[in-house]
Design a protein around this nucleic acid. Structure first.
Lengths: 363, 363
DNA sequence: ACCACTGGTCAAGTGAGTTGACCAGTCGGC
DNA sequence: GCCGACTGGTCAACTCACTTGACCAGTGGT
């Protein structure tokens, strides 16, 4: 059913009108001035400029400051093929992608399909290495896409996309200084809040357990977590940041190390839904009572958490919303092919569950 | 100079899209609900309502509170609609669909998109009730599809699709006598095998824990499970089939009942991945050791099981394969629109894990 | 009686687009 | 020479269509 509405931005519509006008040889040699054009099109100058920038990127115009834009003579129809695919970059194979992401990805695929776009998933550790530049260049040449959706990306990758000027969107945080549109969670606020919950319940040895990756979201998580200990209440407590490599075995080992000492931690904030499951189940398996021996909060949540006993305290978000926001940005981006730094930051909702324990005054 | 840009509001565009849809007789009798429509159009409800109000003013719709809008019959024929969509029926909303299914569904969507087909998911308990006929008729009229993909269906539903002669494929087993193409797992063999594993390890009180649904797969599971007890080794043992309603709370209660007696079961075969998680975690939470106090096998597996400690014994299958097979049948079906009873039965691979215990001779 | 659905309403938030202002560079004419 | 009227380049403030998320009462099937 093609019920979907196209919803082109004014910029796209203006660009299309200008293309049409150029095609019909409305002007010769140079374009009219911006102010004149914006008057004719009945749009504002910033909007017109964005449209003209599109045409420049397509090679139809040349600009130089102080002079009117020059119309480039075209030899035959060098119509810039518009790519109708969105490439997705992920380090994980489809089966290992967390259900939450799978859910919004599927919904996103549906939304994009209605707009005539196809999602193409490229999964592999290759692009996530220390020096991804060469592989990224190879990929974007061999599998060209109208836009790229980046998932769990490190700084190097993000920087590469900015510099190569390919249209890209982040699902997850952008590193400082990276000007890419993104949809992500406010992990700084989440982790600060979670640590605060632990502190208010009298915990004094608190672990943030996360994957050793260099995504911006994880860095923010750490920063937010540590911020909570700079308050008066937190100064007396012990903040521990522990890393693992993402595999179940590695998480188990890390927990083994943490719990093997005399003054073991009593509170665990765990990043990502599956490591949270591993943490909680391993605690139970060791005979610890949750929450009285060890409290747990999951930074991320997935639907299978509903089926864990005791119910984990966690932060929940809406995959449908995530998909809609991404789809709008992507459709926009593929139409305009220009970065408009559009950062959407979502605050997931806290769900207390049973793994946190009652409020108490002192330890 | 036709440089001017027509700038329709979203409301106008939506109204136009709806007029178009009405023209094409996309729905019969009544419109879908506002929430559903706004989701399909990817606009917010207030905006949609304004558009619907436009149509009402034009006399194409009638509204009355608490009921869906009624389409006013108009003279003049509508165009016959071409069906390039595959409708998916599921009782669960997208977020609650198990990751395994989500995974093959997404891959299926990709494969179908390549063939120019769109997947349209319809989730709701409505079609899964005791008397689904009326609602199914309404659905297939209001959202016509070139083929239907049925998920977790009961016998009544399957029979309805056979009798209405709509092209349909089952993901899951067909009930006896139902001649629909299907891709499913051989749960009879799986459960017989699982019960055999328990018996060989000396367990004598063995539970099959499953959702009280009337899908063919679940019936086969029960049959296969019980078959294992008709061997010489199984005759001395106690087979218990316990049902729950699928909610975490219900599973917990059921387990509470099972474990509350003196001679509690020592082995649990659990259908579906999430109930298996609930079972294993609840056992641990109660201080039972897995597997020495209670052994667990999951009939179905999902990737998050990797992150449970101890590793659950389970049966694994390949979502990619599942998607490929379904896509072939569906593309075939939508091309030829005839049933060719094509039953594909998959035997998932057994993974012993840690929750089953070593082999031993006697209890 | 319940529960899941329907249409009806609303307040708060947000982001695309507008407006209007100020640069520095270019160019023609006095 | 130099003024002034153009050019493109940039920015901050404002506006309003649209979104979001929440509630309500009524309907209808189980």
């Amino acid at each position: 059913m093609s019920l979907a509405i196209h919803r082109p931005s004014l910029v796209e519509q203006a660009a299309e009108a200008l293309r049409q006008a150029l095609q019909e040889r409305t002007w010769i040699g140079r374009m009219p001035g911006e102010r004149e054009l914006s008057r004719q099109l009945n749009i504002s100058r910033p909007t017109l400029r964005a449209a003209l920038e599109l045409l420049r990127a397509e090679g139809r115009l040349k600009v130089s400051p102080g002079r009117q834009r020059v119309i480039v003579k075209r030899a035959g129809g060098g119509a810039p093929l518009r790519l109708r695919t969105v490439g997705v970059l992920t380090p994980l194979p489809l089966q290992e992608i967390p259900p939450f992401a799978l859910c919004w990805m599927d919904r996103l695929r549906e939304l994009l399909a209605q707009a005539g776009l196809q999602l193409e998933i490229h999964s592999g550790r290759r692009w996530y290495s220390r020096r991804p530049e060469k592989d990224l260049a190879a990929l974007t040449e061999q599998a060209p896409a109208g836009a790229w959706l980046l998932f769990m990306t490190n700084e190097r990758m993000q920087r590469w996309f900015v510099e190569s000027k390919l249209p890209a969107v982040l699902s997850g945080s952008g590193h400082p200084g990276i000007e890419l549109p993104s949809v992500d969670f406010d992990y700084r606020a989440v982790c600060r809040h979670a640590a605060g919950q632990f502190l208010r319940r009298g915990h004094r040895r608190i672990v943030l357990l996360m994957q050793a990756s260099d995504t911006a979201g994880d860095r923010e998580s750490e920063a937010g977590f540590l911020e909570a200990f700079q308050t008066r209440a937190g100064a007396a407590a012990n903040a521990i940041v522990a890393h693992h490599d993402g595999t179940p075995e590695s998480i188990r080992q890390r927990l083994h190390g943490l719990l093997g000492v005399a003054a073991a931690p009593t509170a665990f904030l765990v990043a990502r839904s599956m490591p949270a499951l591993m943490t909680a189940s391993e605690l139970l398996r060791r005979g610890l009572h949750v929450p009285s021996d060890a409290a747990v909060i999951a930074r991320d949540s997935d639907h299978f958490h509903e089926y864990f006993s005791p119910q984990l305290a966690r932060y929940r978000a809406d995959p449908e919303m995530h998909a809609r926001r991404l789809s709008r940005i992507l459709i926009h981006l593929i139409g305009e092919a220009l970065h408009r730094s559009n950062r959407i930051r979502i605050m997931p909702k806290f769900f207390p569950g049973e793994s946190l324990g009652e409020m108490r005054r002192s330890s």
